[in-house]
Design a protein around this nucleic acid. Structure first.
Length: 522
DNA sequence: GGACGGTGAAACTTCAGGTTGCCTC
DNA sequence: GAAGTTTCACCGTCC
């Protein structure tokens, strides 16, 4: 293949290559190593593109209006879109991601600068994939990404559906040393070995409990024989190590009240692997069975139960339960606490300590950092329930809308699990409290809006509007004049609400042509 | 002389991703 | 490790 030099319009190679791709009427994916660099690369690329068109203008407008009040991120993306470029990462709202992906497929957007979100899962091929092969790794600073990931990204190059005969995956090297290293590490190297996920303790814990709960394994020996035959067992080789791990987990499961063992039984195992007759029978308690059904990591379930017990002894608020959810492993990785936030969060912590049901570790313990992060997320949840919008959350906590949505979703899942555990533990007074927390967290509303927000098609915005105008509960909706209601939320929704509260209002036809309704637009 | 604004260097800070559950007040 | 952000010293201008 003949190599053609790429014009250097900026001093950033990735941008030059991307611009060149567009000039050749093709599309490019630029894989960046941070969200920030994805955004800034997209912006800088957009600066180099002069053309705009009506379709892009419309798309840009759509992107801007995805959230009721656009964040800085929304505005930046909208500006890029006008020039046919976009950035893509987990911080975007789901709808924005969808719009970016769809319009790239359609060919309207020419360049996407993305974090690895696009290399996994989303099938979005382009003529060129431009890849930054280094990423900050925490322990060792900036380091090479795994070869497997490189293959994922490189695999996006080439669109057979669009009659591309080939695609180009381009790696950016800083110097000759990098060139050699890239050839050795990525181009000429096979992907890394795949390791079993079972080796991860939360997964192993969850599986142990679920195998016992379903009756698939009925004893320690059964469990060991099962794992021996898995990919994990084959890969690990050393069964003594695995046995130790399983023993540790079994001890915990019993200590936490999820299983009971020691019942000598003359059962015959349904499982073909072992002679369990000689082995002690293990079975789940009703609590353990529920934990397993809820797909909760037993450790998380134990943490939740401990917190719930505390909650029965003290005054709790919605913050208490959202703090409990924020503290679980499932919500990790948590958004980091920036240096200038520490003081503020610690101050809030002192203020709120009476409401907390997960206790503060000593400042010298390694968990303290994670604890602060969980408090930060709880505070963001609190502000959200206090009707602050996504822009505020982004500015105040540096948590992007897409990420915040994901965290709320996860917290809801954990809280649902907590609610179910509270039921089975007969902590009946907590059930309603957790349910209210879930509802407020889902809708992002203050307590006073709860009755209104229960209505279908009424969220935080409409509920607040009604409340501000004196319609504060379902009784007020019933009593309210239909024209007043229509003025606030539009006629069709007003009629719908009346119907929902059992006060259906008959529409009066205005003598229009047959088939035409008299509902006014709002 | 002091307040203010602009500028640029130095110091500091931060850094990817995302499934599982139930239907209920 | 690198890019973006904040801080701070320095200088010039204006009142």
């Amino acid at each position: 293949m003949k190599l053609v030099p790429i014009p250097e319009v900026t001093d950033i190679s990735a941008i030059n290559i991307a611009i060149d791709t567009v000039k050749n009427s093709k599309q490019a994916l630029v894989f960046c190593n941070t969200r920030r660099s994805a955004e800034s690369t997209a912006e800088k690329t957009a600066h180099q593109i002069k053309t705009e068109n009506k379709e892009l203008e419309e798309l840009s407008d759509k992107i801007l209006k995805v959230l009721s009040s656009p964040t800085k991120q929304c505005r930046r993306l909208a500006l890029c879109i006008k020039k046919g470029t976009a950035f893509h990462h987990a911080g975007l709202a789901a709808k924005q991601r969808e719009l970016v992906e769809d319009n790239f497929r359609k060919g309207l957007i020419k360049i996407i600068c993305s974090t690895p979100t696009l290399s996994f899962g989303v099938n979005l091929p382009a003529f060129r994939a431009i890849i930054d092969l280094k990423r900050y790794g925490g322990r060792w600073g900036l380091d090479w990404i795994p070869a497997l990931e490189y293959h994922q990204m490189a695999g996006r190059a080439g669109r057979p559906d669009f009659n591309d005969e080939f695609g180009e995956a381009i790696c950016i090297a800083g110097n000759q040393n990098d060139v050699d290293e890239i050839l050795e590490r990525f181009i000429n190297a096979p992907p890394e070995n795949i390791y079993s996920k079972l080796a991860v303790e939360p997964v192993l814990r969850t599986y142990c409990l679920s195998l016992i709960a379903t009756g698939f394994t009925k004893s320690r020996q059964d469990l060991i024989s099962f794992f021996e035959k898995t990919f994990y067992g084959k890969q690990y080789g050393d069964m003594v190590e695995i046995e130790n791990k399983i023993d540790k987990i079994l001890n915990y499961l019993e200590e936490w009240g999820f299983t009971k063992s020691g019942v000598k039984d003359d059962f015959v195992s349904a499982n073909q692997y072992t002679n369990s007759e000689a082995d002690e029978k293990i079975e789940t308690t009703p609590l353990g069975e529920r934990v397993s059904q809820l797909y909760l990591d037993p450790f998380t379930a134990h943490q939740i139960i401990t917190s719930l017990r505390r909650a029965t002894q003290k005054m709790t608020t919605e913050l208490s339960f959202s703090q409990m959810a924020s503290s679980t492993l499932e919500l990790r990785p948590l958004s980091s606490v920036r240096v200038r936030e520490v003081e503020k969060i610690e101050a809030e912590l002192t203020e709120l300590s009476s409401e907390l049901i997960v206790f503060e570790p000593s400042i010298f313990e390694p968990e303290y950092d994670e604890f602060l992060k969980s408090i930060k997320l709880s505070l963001a949840f609190r502000d959200w329930m206090d009707e602050k919008n996504e822009d505020y959350i982004m500015e105040e906590y540096n948590i992007a809308p897409g990420e915040f949505h994901l965290k709320r979703d996860l917290a809801d899942w954990i809280l649902y699990g907590s609610e179910e555990l509270a039921k089975i533990l007969n902590f009946n007074e907590l059930v309603a409290k957790i349910r209210k927390t879930r509802f407020r967290l889902d809708k992002g509303i203050k307590e006073e809006l709860v009755p209104l927000a229960r209505l279908k098609n009424v969220g935080r915005v409409r509920a607040r509007k009604l409340f501000r105008n004196g319609i504060k509960d379902l009784g007020d909706v019933k009593k309210a004049d239909i024209s007043t209601l229509s003025q606030l939320i539009g006629r069709s929704l007003a009629l719908d609400l009346k119907k929902q509260v059992g006060k259906e209002v008959k529409e009066v036809p205005k003598g229009k042509r047959k088939g035409q309704t008299s509902i006014e637009k709002y």
